[in-house]
Design a protein around this nucleic acid. Structure first.
Length: 322
DNA sequence: CATCAGGGCCCTG
DNA sequence: CAGGGCCCTGAT
């Protein structure tokens, strides 16, 4: 589907702001729906029934951060529509987040301090809706990065929409309900294995209107967790990701998966990843970051993945199997 | 060639 | 509450 450029606007994030580390997370494996180069991110975005192409560009002025947004669409958009879209972009990328308290508290930390200085202005964030993230969460389960990418790609190219905009071809996520006529075997043929059942049930759940993302955002963390755990195929690991990436809780840290455990052991304790520090001890260590536990680890985690882009880190390569 | 461990979760006993 | 089964893939 060829899209036309229908709107442009600009966003002003809070200061400090760093474009590249906010709009490119080297550890986010999703491919085919976005493209990044320094200063620019292209992203497909299914919003209120319309598949869109977005281009976000760094437009820092001498004094303050600014992001230019261009929107491509199959049809004209109302002002109301683009306003809600930009509000959602602000939300998903945490462009209104005030980082000053976090920085003030931990700028002297031995490990976090230098990372904070290096990534001054980086926001946590994820471009996906709850529904989209759930699908991503499911393909992350019990699989290495390479396999997750392969499953995601198969799904996206089977049920998504190919979009052409700004000289790029990217796939746009399908909408909830798209899988209602799809039988489980068809999903299994995409080599998602037992996850087919979860994907199918999550799609059904949304189609039935049993999950309202916007309403859930207004609830407290416990309620969000309870609601999410009702979904078939969603357990503690997936909920932990969701609470951070989709619901933006910076303080919640109750889960460490085996591969992450090995990486944290090396980074925080310089411990041989093959003899990892017990999860309990890691969680106890993160407690010192108080209300910013997840945010703190996000900073260190992203720093590690950015390093990996520029240098070979043998111990890390062994663990991630991309 | 066979076996096994992955970025879990559900279900059974 | 512990532990088996589920899927595919790459490593050994």
């Amino acid at each position: 589907m060829k899209l036309k450029k229908v709107a442009s606007s600009e966003l002003t994030p809070t200061t400090p702001f760093d474009f590249d580390s906010t709009f490119h997370k080297p550890d986010h494996f999703t491919t085919g729906d976005n493209y990044w180069e320094p200063g620019t991110r292209w992203q497909t975005w299914f919003w209120q029934g319309i598949p869109l192409g977005l281009k976000l560009a760094n437009a820092w002025t001498r004094v303050k951060p600014k992001i230019n947004i261009d929107v491509w669409s199959p049809r004209p958009l109302t002002r109301e529509f683009t306003d809600s879209l930009t509000a959602e972009i602000r939300y998903r990328y945490n462009l209104d987040l005030d980082l000053t308290d976090f920085y003030r508290k931990f700028k002297a930390d031995k490990i976090l301090g230098p990372v904070i200085r290096k990534w001054q202005g980086m926001r946590p964030g994820h471009p996906s809706s709850l529904y989209e993230y759930l699908i991503i969460g499911i393909v992350l389960q019990n699989a290495t990065v390479r396999r997750s990418i392969q499953m995601f790609k198969s799904l996206l190219e089977k049920y998504g929409t190919p979009l052409e905009f700004d000289g790029r071809k990217l796939w746009c996520f399908w909408s909830p309900g798209r899988l209602s006529t799809v039988i489980e075997q068809e999903l299994r043929d995409l080599k998602v294995g037992y996850r087919a059942k979860s994907i199918k049930k999550i799609d059904e759940y949304f189609t039935a209107g049993a999950m309202d993302e916007m309403a859930l955002r207004q609830k407290d963390r416990e309620t969000q967790m309870t609601e999410l755990l009702k979904l078939y195929g969603v357990g503690p690991a997936t909920v932990w990701y969701l609470l951070f990436d989709v619901f933006h809780h910076w303080d919640f840290f109750n889960h460490v998966s085996p591969w992450e455990q090995k990486i944290y052991s090396k980074v925080f304790f310089d411990q041989d990843p093959e003899k990892p520090v017990p999860v309990k001890k890691l969680l106890k260590h993160f407690a010192k970051f108080g209300a910013y536990k997840q945010l703190a680890v996000h900073y260190i985690w992203e720093d590690l993945w950015w390093k990996r882009k520029n240098e070979h880190i043998p111990w890390l390569e062994k663990l991630i199997k991309v």
